[in-house]
């Protein structure tokens, strides 16, 4: 089986969120970058688990980004995977990213394309679905479990207030979320091995962008907490009912 795992570079979960250039750009100064947690913990680790079960499995990683994305893709290779492809373009929006990855996916004849359920920065959650439609493949969003039985995948996905188990023939595209696998940290052997794994850089073909982030805003600051005495819980209920109109 051949798996393509899509990797994004995102700010660390604790990064300070601020904007520059008249609020049109994320302020990157001093920001630590990580592998998007959904890409790392769920899709990549699940792919590695499948390879551990069946060593003939091939895992390729793909990312869209400039040279500054290389430490991230190396870190992903340290966790596992056979080789990585970096499409040398600045990621601008989901359709552009999906179109670029689709080309790699099409040429590589993958049985399975995995993405995280969303990136923690732009929260679009769209690349998996966009890719699936460009490639005309089946797609399951927000998958929480994946089992492989020969030519069929058995996938669980979360729906409102429940869960479904779905069978689907390969090839298919999945977006992964919590439940899919347990987070791992790379070990020394993996880190050493990652240094010599192939990392191919390819030039992007010209693709369209359909949307643009025109401005960013921070949410208005909270008014400050209203503290209620633990001996006067009735007052809290009154406030929630009369002031906040929440109950």
């Amino acid at each position: 089986m051949k798996i393509l795992v899509c990797i994004s570079k995102t700010p660390d979960t604790t990064a300070k969120i601020a904007f520059t250039d008249n609020n049109t750009k994320f302020a990157e100064a001093g920001v630590q970058w990580i592998i998007n947690p959904y890409d790392e913990w769920y899709s990549l680790v699940r792919a590695i688990e499948l390879k551990e079960k069946d060593p003939s499995t091939i895992i390729n990683l793909v990312t869209v980004g400039g040279a500054d994305a290389e430490p991230i893709i190396r870190k992903a290779l340290a966790l596992g995977g056979d080789e990585a492809i970096r499409i040398n373009a600045e990621p601008l929006e989901s359709y552009q990213v999906a179109s670029l990855i689709a080309e790699i996916a099409r040429n590589g004849n993958y049985d399975l394309v995995l993405t995280g359920k969303e990136t923690i920065d732009y929260n679009g959650g769209a690349v998996g679905g966009l890719l699936a439609e460009v490639l005309d493949l089946p797609y399951i969003a927000n998958a929480t479990n994946l089992q492989v039985n020969g030519s069929t995948a058995t996938v669980k996905r979360e729906i409102e207030g429940g869960e479904e188990t779905i069978e689907c023939p390969f090839p298919l595209v999945l977006s992964c979320q919590k439940g899919m696998a347990e987070a791992r940290i790379p070990n020394m052997r993996g880190i050493m091995a990652a240094r010599t794994k192939p990392l191919k850089v390819v030039d992007p073909s010209p693709v369209q962008t359909l949307t643009k982030f025109s401005e960013f805003q921070l949410p208005p600051a909270k008014q400050g907490v209203k503290l209620v005495s633990p001996d006067n819980v009735d007052e809290l209920v009154r406030l929630l009912h009369e002031e906040a109109r929440a109950i």
Binding site: Y95, G129, L130, A132, E133
Partner: peptide
């Protein structure tokens, strides 16, 4: 859960820009 799977696909099919 349904919209997350459908909105991107429909956008591609209709050559539409998507805001998710």
């Amino acid at each position: 859960s349904s919209g997350k799977a459908l909105a991107p696909r429909v956008a591609v099919r209709l050559k539409a820009g998507l805001a998710a």
